[in-house]
Write a protein that binds this DNA or RNA. Structure first.
Length: 235
DNA sequence: GACTTCGGCTT
DNA sequence: AAGCCGAAGTC
């Protein structure tokens, strides 16, 4: 480094291992301009937002992230949807439908988004009753049915066989197929950090010790198969 | 050759 | 005006 001021900061909001660095140009036509870059945990020097997106993979939504300041523009947070008219959006109905973006984490985890904490007075119990435990975004009722007809397949377009559900798990709702149930459960696994309980009141799902043991056997067998498959690849 | 900093094309 | 990135410049 030569005649430039440079300061490195562990700005909070960056995940561990990330550094944000800025340097001010001291000479030339662009003297005074500030260059910002980020140092990834793996030592890469990121010097633009596109580059950051690249290094991070497509599974992060940095649309609300301001590269220059290193902060989230809460102004852009709500409006982050909606595209400019004109160009066709091939992901229409997928990316723009919050209920369908299942396996992709929508938040850029490397930059913690600010959260406004609203505290109610101890007395006002009206709304605080709802605020216990992790809150889930409201969803359209039976939104899983939109997944109807979608199936996973391998590279030869051979469809994967669906799974069977234990018969103590039953769908509640109009024309809920087993396939739909599985999609719903899979979605819940992705979206929730809490246990998946299904309907609480009437038809609670009971998992017996026997069920657990059977499942353990299955897992063990699957692991053996996997182990064999891998070792046969190595030979 | 690696790394820093600036210019200038592009949006 | 800002962003991005090639490349000049420095070590």
């Amino acid at each position: 480094m030569y005649g430039v001021e440079k300061r490195r900061s562990d700005v909070q909001g960056l995940p561990p291992g990330w550094k944000r660095e800025e340097s001010i140009r001291k000479s030339g036509l662009s003297a005074g301009k500030t260059d910002v870059y980020y140092l990834s945990p793996s030592g890469d020097k990121i010097r633009s937002k596109p580059q950051l997106v690249r290094s991070l993979g497509e599974n992060f939504d940095l649309s609300c992230f301001d590269f220059r300041t290193g902060k989230i523009l809460q102004s852009a947070i709500r409006k982050s949807k909606r595209h400019t008219a004109g160009s066709y959006d091939y992901a229409r109905g997928i990316r723009h439908d919050a209920n369908l973006v299942l396996p992709i984490r929508q938040t850029a985890s490397i930059f913690k988004q600010p959260v406004t904490v609203v505290r109610n007075r101890p007395e006002s119990r009206t709304k605080s009753d709802l605020k216990h435990g992790p809150q889930e975004q409201p969803k359209q009722l039976f939104w899983e049915k939109r997944l109807h007809g979608l199936q996973a397949c391998d590279i030869t377009e051979e469809k994967f066989k669906s799974l069977d559900l234990p018969n103590n798990i039953q769908g509640v709702g109009p024309e809920l197929s087993t396939e739909n149930m599985l999609q719903s459960i899979a979605a819940a696994l992705h979206l929730n950090s809490q246990p998946i309980t299904g309907q609480h009141a009437s038809k609670a799902v009971v998992v017996t010790e026997n069920d657990i043991q059977k499942q353990e056997v299955k897992v063990t067998e699957a692991r053996k198969k996997l182990e064999q498959a891998i070792s046969s690849l190595i030979d």
